[in-house]
Computed example of a mutant assay.
Amino acid sequence: MAVADALGLEEYHLVGYSMGAVVSLLTAAQDPRVSRLVIGGMGCAVVECGGVDTRVLDAERLVEALLTEGDLDGYPATARAFREFADFLGSDRPSLAAQARAVHAGPTPLDLVTVPTLLLAGSEDELATRPHVLVDALPDARLRVIDGDHLGAVVAPEFAASIVELLDG
């Protein structure tokens, strides 16, 4: 919200993926300037766990993998893949680690997310299982399932096309 404040925005669309989707949901629940929302890489865990699916991804091991400068041997495959993807994107790993620690501090107030919302979920994404549970918990949401796993769905052509379709609509 501080970025929107600094830019003087009266209204804005918000897009977030994975941990960014949790941040986007929390922002949309608090900031009435969010007019449309696209979230991806999430499913029932937002409703059942409050955010990223810790049943699949051990948050503490993810934090360790994000903060280590050493070898990733011995870390779970999901944490290694997340770290490698963060490095590929040039992400701020300490910030991601802080978000991973904080994301499960409490329930996500889904009833306060009243803007039109699109949930994009990969058909093989183990972090976005049963996405209809999340869609059903949001007052104005729809679901689009895209071929791919957690990292593969993002590069599918229909992923970007779906975002543009909602935001242009």
Rank of each mutant, 00 (worst) to 15 (best):
P76F: 11
F85S: 11
S162Q: 05
G74C: 01
A160P: 00
C44L: 03
L26T: 01
F159N: 13
R144M: 11
G74E: 02
E158N: 10
R61P: 02
V23T: 12
A156Q: 15
T129F: 08
E48M: 14
E124S: 14
D136H: 08
G43H: 03
A28D: 05
L72M: 06
A45K: 03
S35K: 06
V22F: 03
D92Y: 08
I39Y: 04
G51S: 12
F159K: 09
V47I: 14
L72T: 09
L151F: 15
V52T: 13
A45G: 12
L134F: 04
G70R: 01
V133F: 12
P157E: 09
A98I: 06
E48Q: 15
S35I: 11
A105L: 07
D53L: 04
A21F: 02
P116Q: 04
D149K: 06
E69N: 11
S24W: 00
R36K: 05
E126C: 09
G51T: 11
V133A: 14
P107H: 15
E126H: 08
L110R: 02
A153I: 10
L96A: 13
T114P: 12
V23E: 07
R101S: 04
D87N: 06
A137Q: 12
V52H: 01
C49T: 12
F82Y: 12
G106F: 13
V145A: 08
L37M: 15
D53H: 03
V23H: 00
P116S: 06
D149P: 10
V154F: 11
L120M: 11
G41M: 06
L66V: 11
P139W: 11
M19L: 14
R130T: 15
L14R: 04
P131T: 07
I146K: 05
R83I: 12
A137K: 04
L72C: 07
E64T: 14
R55M: 10
D71K: 06
L119Y: 01
Q99C: 14
D73I: 10
P32V: 05
P32S: 09
L119F: 03
R55H: 13
L67T: 13
E60S: 13
I39N: 02
G50E: 07
P109M: 07
G40K: 03
T54K: 00
V63D: 07
G16F: 08
D136P: 05
L143M: 09
L37R: 07
R93I: 06
A105R: 06
R144N: 08
T27N: 01
G41N: 03
A161E: 14
A160W: 02
V46P: 03
L57C: 10
V34F: 05
A77N: 12
A29M: 09
G41Y: 02
A121T: 12
D87V: 10
L96T: 11
L67V: 14
G51N: 02
E158I: 14
L138T: 02
V63I: 14
V56E: 12
F159M: 12
T68V: 07
D125S: 13
L138S: 01
S95R: 10
G20W: 02
L120I: 13
A59G: 06
D111Q: 10
L89Y: 12
R142T: 07
A102S: 09
Y75H: 05
V22D: 01
A28M: 04
A65D: 08
